[in-house]
């Protein structure tokens, strides 16, 4: 059993060592100084952060609802929330693309956003955020649901006898107790958004300096035979993932139990 466990740990360690051994510090610095990669890095940091904030913003009340309330049709919401987690990523992207471009009579969502609202989405940066959010939010909901499951609902009940509406009790009593879970949900959503590739490729495209994030950079560099740059960007993503894991460890995980 020990040998079996050790072999998996060894595999992960070897993967990282192989990446590090493949590139040199000079190659790594040269790669991350490329303007395309710098632009992709900034876009990644910005879109992941926006997607994670949106995920927590939506995931906190939804996780609370699923944790606290028993209502008709709850299982449908429960199942729908899990769909982005089990769906192949490419299908999420394709579904987003179809949603924005399917014609309902003369009306089309993308056309309306572009012409009437002045906020085109498809193949632009908002599409990157939406593709990341579509999957990351499901993880935020799950995390927040577990967080609220671990918080005794009696405190909210007592708050209601003290004059709070259900909403007030959520904001004043449940939310302050859930801060660790909120940080965990934010971090997990951010990490999911960082690793997203399929939906972004389909829904936002892979236009250099416009919709290119680090996961698409790895793909683009590979496709033009720049294996060194692809590995350097991969290492950059490994470093980001390690920072995320450290943050998770520091604040404790709301996913326990």
């Amino acid at each position: 059993m020990g040998g079996l466990s050790a072999s998996y740990i060894l595999l992960i360690a070897l993967l990282l060592i192989a990446d590090v051994a493949y590139t040199s510090p000079a190659e790594f610095i040269a790669a991350i100084q490329k303007p395309e990669i710098q632009s992709a890095t900034w876009l990644t940091l910005k879109t992941c952060t926006v997607a994670a904030i949106l995920s927590v913003w939506v995931g906190t009340p939804l996780g609370y609802l699923l944790s606290r309330y028993r209502f008709r049709g709850r299982w449908i919401i429960d199942t729908l929330v899990d769909i982005p987690i089990v769906l192949p990523p490419l299908v999420v992207g394709l579904s987003l693309l179809i949603l924005f471009h399917v014609a309902i009579g003369d009306w089309q969502l993308e056309q309306w956003l572009r012409d009437d609202v002045g906020f085109p989405v498809t193949f632009r940066w908002p599409a990157v955020v939406l593709a990341q959010f579509a999957v990351a939010c499901a993880f935020a909901v799950k995390t927040m649901r577990v967080t609220f499951n671990q918080i005794d609902p009696r405190a909210e009940e007592v708050a209601r006898t003290l004059g709070c509406s259900r909403g007030d009790a959520f904001v004043r009593v449940a939310l302050p107790q859930a801060w660790q879970g909120i940080i965990t949900a934010f971090t997990i959503a951010w990490a999911r958004a960082l690793g997203e590739f399929g939906p972004i490729l389909v829904f936002a495209g892979a236009t250099r300096m416009r919709t290119e994030v680090l996961s698409t950079t790895v793909f683009l560099e590979l496709s033009i035979g720049e294996l060194g740059s692809a590995v350097a960007v991969s290492l950059l993503m490994v470093a980001m993932a390690i920072v995320v894991l450290v943050v998770l460890r520091l604040f404790g995980s709301g996913m326990e139990g």
């Binding site: 007592v158 708050a159 209601r160 006898t161 004059g163 709070c164 509406s165």
Partner: peptide, 17 residues
């Protein structure tokens, strides 16, 4: 609702915030 009843309630387990 509980809020509208204006009752002071001390549960057995106190449930301090």
């Amino acid at each position: 609702s509980p809020a509208e009843r204006a009752i002071g309630y001390v549960p057995q387990d106190l449930v301090l915030f």
